[in-house]
Design a protein around this nucleic acid. Structure first.
Lengths: 125, 125
DNA sequence: CCGATATATCAGCCTTTACTTATATAAGTG
DNA sequence: CACTTATATAAGTAAAGGCTGATATATCGG
């Protein structure tokens, strides 16, 4: 990183990896155990169990997923916040492909983030 | 890469780099010359002119930006397609943060891509 | 208790990638 | 033309990050 010492991990850094993207896709269908995820990923990417576990750790550490323990099992759930962050980042480009939408629906689409009342302004970086 | 030989570059791979994200942000305001971009990036990230040029090349090669030559100048423009691809990928997660929207506005927001009638299910990867 | 199952961590390797310096190419300018 | 400006390419280096194999830590089931 060219910035200094602190490693500020942006949401995009996490999604840069295809395995992690695939894991999130799996979690989009609802919570999954580490084992279930590992089975699918191992089949699709031919990597080891530790490799998958490491990706799960990254997803945990970066807030993209949360875990719930149940006995020896670990149930992973996708966490929307960082994904929303990505969505928010995309807002500045939406104008270039939403021309065909009328003002109302655009407003509504944007309304997702632009809450009715107060709150901090959208984070910039 | 764990997949084989072919290097399928996903849109997210490009956005993993903070410099490239920043360049795209600059382009969101309209086309910019290589020089203008370089000035800003050099100031913000303290990297060399070639480094910026290399990032511009990546953005070109991956379809995130297009160039128009005018004399010795190169005007860069952001290309929406790959960004839309990201937006589309996010669709599968939107349900987790759009609960508070009423059905209509959700429908409109989704309507961007999800055509009124039949068609193939959302692309999987 | 003991082996099996479920999951995580650690250390080291190896590839990828973003950087630097040097240089090339082309276009403006006097 | 020569000089400078605008931008790109090339070669080499260094750091980041993802992988493997080994191993640790629980929990489960007899």
């Amino acid at each position: 990183m060219q910035n200094g010492t602190i490693t500020v991990v942006h949401a995009f850094d996490i999604l840069g990896d295809p395995v992690r993207r695939r894991i999130l896709e799996l979690l989009a269908d609802g919570e999954q155990t580490s084992g279930a995820i590992t089975d699918v990923i191992r089949a699709e990417f031919a990597i080891s169990q530790p490799a998958v576990s490491q990706h799960l750790r990254v997803l945990r550490d970066s807030g993209f997923a949360t875990v719930r323990a149940e006995g020896a099992r670990r149930f992973y759930t996708v966490e929307p916040a960082p994904l929303r962050e990505i969505d928010t980042w995309l807002d500045r480009f939406r104008g270039s492909w939403e021309h065909r939408l009328d003002a109302l629906s655009t407003e509504l689409a944007r309304g997702r983030r632009t809450r009715p009342a107060g709150g901090p302004p959208p984070t910039q970086e």
